[in-house]
Simulated assay, not measured.
Amino acid sequence: MGPCYTASRVWPVGGLDWQIEFQPNRRRPDCWSRDGDWIKFCVTLISDATEVAASFSCLLVDQSATPRHSSLSKVITKSSTFCRQSSSSLEVFLATRSELDRSNYLKDDQILVQCEITVLLLGDTPATNGAALRLPVPSTLAVPRRVRAAARSDLQKHLGELLRSQTATDITFLVAGEPVPAHRCVLAARPPVFMAGLFGEMKENASPFVEIDDMDAEAFRAMLRYIYTDMFPDEQEDEQATLMAQHLLDAADRYGMERLKGLCVDKVCQGISAETVATTLALADQHGCSKLKDRCMEFILSTPANLICAVAATEGYKHLEASCPSVLTDLLYKLAAAQGPRK
Rank of each mutant, 00 (worst) to 15 (best):
R295H: 15
H183T: 07
A305N: 09
D238F: 09
R102Q: 14
P325V: 15
K40V: 08
S86M: 15
L163I: 05
A338T: 10
L332A: 11
C269W: 10
M1S: 09
A284T: 01
S55A: 15
V311M: 11
L281Y: 03
R254S: 04
L159G: 12
V137A: 11
F220G: 00
P325E: 15
P24M: 12
I212K: 04
A241I: 10
T44S: 13
G256A: 05
G14I: 01
A278F: 01
Q236R: 10
L162H: 07
L198E: 01
S290M: 08
L332W: 00
E258V: 06
K40G: 12
N129V: 09
K203I: 01
A310Y: 07
Q23M: 13
R164T: 03
I39K: 00
E275D: 15
R164V: 06
E235A: 07
Q166K: 13
A189K: 04
R84I: 11
C289A: 14
I171D: 10
A274K: 08
I46H: 06
P24L: 09
L16P: 00
C269E: 03
A65R: 14
L159A: 15
A151V: 05
F173A: 07
R342P: 13
F209Q: 12
L263Y: 12
Y228T: 11
P67Y: 10
E275C: 12
P181T: 06
R190W: 01
A131H: 11
D30C: 10
I111C: 05
F199V: 04
S57D: 05
P341Y: 00
I212V: 14
L94D: 03
S153G: 11
R164I: 02
F41M: 05
D48H: 12
R184H: 07
R34T: 12
E237V: 06
T276D: 02
A65V: 15
A131V: 11
R84H: 08
K40W: 04
L90H: 03
M244E: 04
K203Y: 01
R145T: 05
Q246P: 01
E178C: 13
D109S: 13
T96G: 05
A49M: 13
S103K: 03
V143I: 14
T128W: 03
F299V: 05
D109I: 04
L260N: 01
F220S: 00
A7I: 02
T125L: 12
E237Y: 08
D30R: 00
M215T: 07
A312D: 03
A336Q: 08
V327E: 05
T229D: 07
A217R: 00
D154G: 11
P136L: 14
G340H: 00
R221V: 12
T172R: 04
Q270H: 07
K78N: 13
P29G: 14
S87K: 10
L159N: 09
L263M: 15
L283H: 04
V75H: 05
L187T: 02
A282K: 01
P325R: 11
T279K: 09
Q166D: 13
G15P: 12
L135T: 13
P3N: 13
G197E: 02
